[in-house]
């Protein structure tokens, strides 16, 4: 495992921890899109089907369990927890996330490396992860005041994606036969979605201002 991959996984892990910290300690999910969190839960549930069939490493299995557990518990918190659910802004979080799922299923059925259940599900999870952040970004546009933890959560997610691209470039040059168009293109699309957010995030950081996105 190279340094970019490890740093990518760690920023991904930190992003989840930041979100859980916000929800668990402050008992608030203000500014967090339930739609995006539900899509992530679906992404991990369809991607990590191999958890019981293919053993890669202890690290790999543990991380998979953490991402599965955390994504479902975040959804549970926002939907069911008696205090947290009150801070959920249902009126603002209106992105029709179900409409993202069907195109991803069709695309995964048409464009995949192997037409098997596990492979199609895995490909579906890649396509869905690429667009899963959209409801969150739309909600962010609508929320005038973005709190620090929410801003950091999205920054860490974007950093995780960027580091994965560096990891692929590194692996391409250091490993033989390392060509994965589906992973790379969907990963690149996903990272580009953060470009706008990054621009305003660094802008506010540079000027030491509170993060605000233009309406």
């Amino acid at each position: 495992m190279n340094i970019f991959r490890l740093a990518g996984d760690m920023t991904h892990l930190f992003s989840v921890l930041v979100l859980l910290l916000k929800i668990h300690t402050i008992k608030s999910c203000a500014g967090i899109s339930l739609k995006t969190q539900e899509l992530y839960a679906l992404v991990f549930a369809t991607r990590y089907l191999d958890i019981f069939t293919d053993y890669i490493s202890l690290y790999n299995t543990c991380m998979k369990l953490i991402f599965l557990g955390s994504s479902f518990s975040i959804v549970w918190y926002i939907r069911r927890h008696k205090i947290v659910r009150r801070s959920y802004d249902k009126e603002q979080d209106t992105f029709r996330h179900h409409f993202l799922i069907l195109p991803c299923i069709i695309l995964a059925l048409l464009i995949n490396e192997k037409f098997t259940v596990k492979e199609v599900m895995w490909t579906f999870s890649l396509y869905l992860e690429a667009v899963a952040i959209l409801p969150q970004l739309v909600l962010l546009q609508r929320t005038r005041n973005i709190d620090n933890l929410t801003g950091q959560y999205i920054f860490l997610l974007g950093a995780y994606r960027s580091l994965y691209i560096l990891n692929w470039i590194y692996r391409y040059f250091t490993e033989q036969h390392y060509v994965h168009w589906i992973t790379w293109i969907s990963g690149l699309v996903q990272t580009l979605l953060y470009a706008d957010f990054f621009y305003y995030y660094f802008h506010s950081w540079k000027n030491n201002e509170k993060l605000q996105l233009p309406a």
Binding site: R5, H12, D50, N60, Y164, N167, E175, Q176
Partner: peptide, 10 residues
């Protein structure tokens, strides 16, 4: 043989 190396990523 097909390279399965992306499957080791998360």
């Amino acid at each position: 043989t097909k390279d399965e190396s992306t499957k080791d990523e998360l």
